[in-house]
Write a protein that binds this DNA or RNA. Structure first.
Length: 110
DNA sequence: TGTTTGACCGGTC
DNA sequence: CGACCGGCCAAAC
């Protein structure tokens, strides 16, 4: 059995993101830390949204910008999902990103 | 097997 | 503020 696949680690963290919260690719990468980089998180998410039930819409880049919204659906599906969870999204960016930011390193480390 | 790319990040110009 | 570069690692071609 393959214990720790790259994607699995990312999936777990993303699934642990509470509603109304978002995190960044770099944060996940830093949390997993062991040889993971922000790009790998994005790569994993690409497979995630296609194959797995991973709330990738809760993952944005360091600026809170919905970088992956184009990958979600044709429309603003990603934004709508976030707003439905109580996250304010304006101009493809998460409103009060600092408040909404859920840092796995901090939250899970405690 | 080597090159290209990818939903990034931080720094620099 | 927009553009570019290096890093970091794995999948796709």
């Amino acid at each position: 059995m393959k214990a720790h696949n790259f994607f699995d680690d990312v999936y777990e963290v993303v699934k642990l993101i509470p509603e109304g919260r978002v995190t960044s690719y770099g944060a996940i990468a830093k949390y997993l830390g062991s040889g993971l980089t922000a790009r790998m998180v994005g790569w994993a998410m690409n497979a995630a949204h296609t194959q797995m039930d991973v709330p990738a819409h809760r993952v944005v880049n360091s600026t809170g910008l919905l970088t992956g919204k184009h990958h979600f659906g044709v429309g603003n599906e990603m934004q709508e999902l976030l707003e439905k969870e109580g996250i304010i999204v304006q101009n493809d960016k998460v409103k009060d990103f600092s408040q909404r930011f859920w840092n796995p390193v901090t939250e899970l480390a405690l």
